[in-house]
Amino acid sequence: MPLSHPHLVEIRHDLHRHPELGMQEARTKAFVAGYLRDLGLEVHEGAGVVGILRSGTGNRAIGLRADMDALPITEQSTHDYVSQNTGVMHACGHDGHTTMLLGAAADLAATRDFDGTVVFLFQPDEETGHGAKAMIDEGVLERFPVEEVYAIHNLPGAPLGQISTRPGLICSSESLFEITITGQGGHSSMPQVGVDAITVGAEMVQALQTIVSRKLAPGAGVVVSITEFLTNGQRNVLPGQAVLKGDVRARSPEDRAQVETFMRQITAGIAAAHGVTVEVSFVTEFVESMNATAPVEAVARVGTALGHDTIADRPPMSFSEDFGQFSAAVPGCFLLMGNGTEGAQGRPLHSDDYDFNDALLPLGAAFWAALVRDRLPTDKKG
């Protein structure tokens, strides 16, 4: 039977008090593994936690993913379950995601009213994009093969319980770049005898914006952001070295590859014009998250049947999601579920006063359980 709302809240608040950064989720993993074992699930621990629940004789299997990690943010909330780990906070709602999936596991373990296997995937380190790959590299999809995989993320600012998703691209990729410029430092009173790396770097900052405005098709949805400009200069010392760091979001692998190509061309050209050397590192941390049609249709069908305001053709999200590693390997669906519009529940994700909406817990748990019954029906239809 479903967990009571107070029980779900108790779990979520406990997880919120004890947030852990990616690949450091020792307490959270122990909590999740212990809870699943108490429900009678088969449990496997590695980079993350995997719970296996079987019912009936069906050979179909689906995967449900929740993320467990927190962020390096100092919480500014005043509620009585504020983070007890200084400088670490569940500012993205992963405490709620984990709780909803545990709630669904409890419901399904008690009823066993489905035919097949549910693989509960509790993933570490979603925030830096390493957790899904770590689980996949361990062989989770070979050891526990699934036909489809799903994930929920809460969405502040959207009405409570509203479900939105889309076929095709749902979340952008994220690539991190680092551009190192090596010129010739010198005295600030005699710039002509050196090559000031700040001047060269500033030119590159401006020129890199032409990738989006002039080299890619309008509406491509690419974002190029320089987020750090570091030098070895001092008050009267012109820097001989500068480092530009930043972030690229793209909606297709082709656009992502073009951005890297243009970035290397632009920086090499400016470096040649000024007689300096330049090195460029471009590393993709998150691939694009792609939704498959059948899983999206299932999500829309279940959401509508449960009475949720359901949108199956929302615009793609500009943020990135580690779920893309799973959906690149197995047909899947990443969906957003409204966290509410008021107070802390309406604050942007990653805000130091954001909070997951406890009213969403039973809605998410019930959705997960209903999705399993839809995809693994006992009447062998669907």
Rank of each mutant, 00 (worst) to 15 (best):
P6Y: 02
P6K: 02
L8H: 13
I11E: 06
R12W: 06
H16C: 01
P19H: 05
L21D: 08
R27Q: 14
K29F: 03
F31W: 12
Y35H: 15
L36K: 09
R37C: 10
L39H: 09
L41W: 05
I52C: 08
R54K: 13
N59W: 03
A61E: 06
A61K: 09
A61Y: 09
D67V: 07
L71D: 05
I73K: 00
T74L: 01
Q76G: 12
S77H: 07
T78L: 07
Y81A: 08
Q84C: 14
N85E: 13
H90M: 03
A91L: 10
A91E: 06
C92K: 04
G93R: 12
D95I: 03
H97T: 09
H97I: 09
H97G: 07
M100V: 13
G103W: 01
A104Q: 08
D107M: 04
D113Y: 02
D115P: 11
F122T: 03
F122V: 06
T128P: 02
G129E: 01
H130E: 10
G131F: 10
K133R: 15
A134W: 00
M135A: 10
D137W: 07
D137E: 15
V149E: 12
Y150M: 10
A151T: 08
G157V: 13
P159C: 07
P159D: 10
G161M: 10
T165V: 09
R166G: 05
P167Y: 08
G168S: 01
S175N: 03
L176M: 13
F177Q: 07
E178H: 11
E178T: 15
E178W: 03
H187Y: 05
S188F: 03
S189H: 09
S189K: 04
V193G: 05
G194V: 00
V195I: 13
M204G: 12
M204P: 14
V205M: 14
Q206R: 12
T210I: 05
I211T: 02
V212H: 11
P218S: 01
L230K: 15
L230W: 06
L230H: 15
L238H: 08
Q241Y: 04
A242C: 14
L244E: 05
K245Q: 13
V248I: 15
P253Y: 13
V259A: 00
V259S: 00
F262D: 07
F262C: 02
R264D: 05
Q265A: 08
T267R: 12
G269S: 08
A271V: 10
A273W: 03
H274R: 15
E279D: 14
V280T: 14
F282P: 09
F282C: 09
E285S: 15
F286A: 02
V287S: 04
A294N: 06
E297S: 00
E297A: 02
E297V: 01
V299R: 04
R301A: 15
V302D: 09
G303Y: 13
G303P: 02
T304F: 11
P315H: 14
P316L: 04
F323C: 06
Q325D: 13
S327E: 10
S327K: 00
C333V: 00
C333Y: 10
F334A: 04
M337G: 00
G338I: 10
G338L: 01
N339I: 05
T341Y: 06
P348K: 11
P348Q: 13
D352N: 15
D358L: 03
L363F: 11
R373W: 09
